[in-house]
Simulated scan of single mutants.
Amino acid sequence: MARILITGSTDGIGKATAAQLLDDGHQVAVHARTAARLQAVRDLTDRGAEVVVGDLARIEEVRDLAEQANRLGRFDAVIHNAATMTGRTVLPVNVVAPYLLTAAVERPARLIYLSSGMHRGGRADLAGIDWAGTRSTGSYSDSKLFLTAFTAAVARRWPDTIAHAVDPGWVPTRMGGAGAPDDLDLAHVTQVWLATSDGPEALASGGYWFHQRLQGTHPAVHDERFQDELLRSLAAHTGVGLAP
């Protein structure tokens, strides 16, 4: 049995991931943006899921969320599922929050970050980026490129931690829209597998996956200079560096 924390787990892919892990006998902690949203996971908490609460767009709430997670005890895996598609909070939610949680939560054995095939259209340019979200300086594609590069940086800097990025597909969730063409039933399968499998592929860190198959990435993802620039920029914004 593994202990697994999943961000953004009150609906969509995150909730499906939590439900599957509970079905498989694992211990799960779900995350809600606000206490009011916990009603949406009542079915999971009734089955024993623990909870953490915090708005990922607000950096002080992310810090508090990390403290809540640490009070629950060390996790075997953390799945960074939460994301937003548009608006000024794209960079705070999609990049800053996973960075800060990675740096501040007691290091698990496995880290999984939800990316997107749209990361390939992102710009590997940090000039003028406003991580605080006071103005819109990055697109969804940019945010997923930054997150995927961050995943590769974690895999490189923390060789004793398994880190993967996952493209769940364009699926009909609240964020993806009703017309999304990919299969919602498959969207959580890869991250469940990566969080729990002892197979050699799941244990080989640094992959970018789509439906349990390795895929190619934007060239900047594995550019170590870009990774280091990204880490320096996020550390300067948050005041928290990624430990060696």
Rank of each mutant, 00 (worst) to 15 (best):
E61M: 12
D76L: 10
A57D: 06
E67A: 15
L100P: 11
V30F: 09
L65E: 10
G54K: 06
L65V: 10
F75A: 11
A32K: 03
G54P: 06
V95S: 02
D24W: 07
L21F: 06
V90S: 06
F75G: 02
P92R: 02
V28Q: 08
L91Y: 08
E106K: 13
A35V: 13
R107D: 06
L56T: 04
P108G: 09
G25S: 06
E60V: 03
A40G: 00
V30L: 08
V53F: 03
G48Y: 05
F75T: 08
V51T: 15
H80R: 03
L22P: 00
A83M: 14
Q68P: 11
T102Q: 07
L21Q: 04
A66F: 03
G87E: 09
L38D: 03
V90Q: 00
L72R: 14
T89E: 14
E50F: 11
E67K: 13
A57K: 01
N70T: 11
L22I: 14
R42H: 12
L56V: 10
V90E: 07
V78P: 06
G48I: 07
R88F: 06
G48L: 07
V30S: 01
A77L: 11
H31N: 09
R63H: 12
E106C: 04
H80F: 15
V93Q: 02
L21V: 08
V51H: 04
R88V: 13
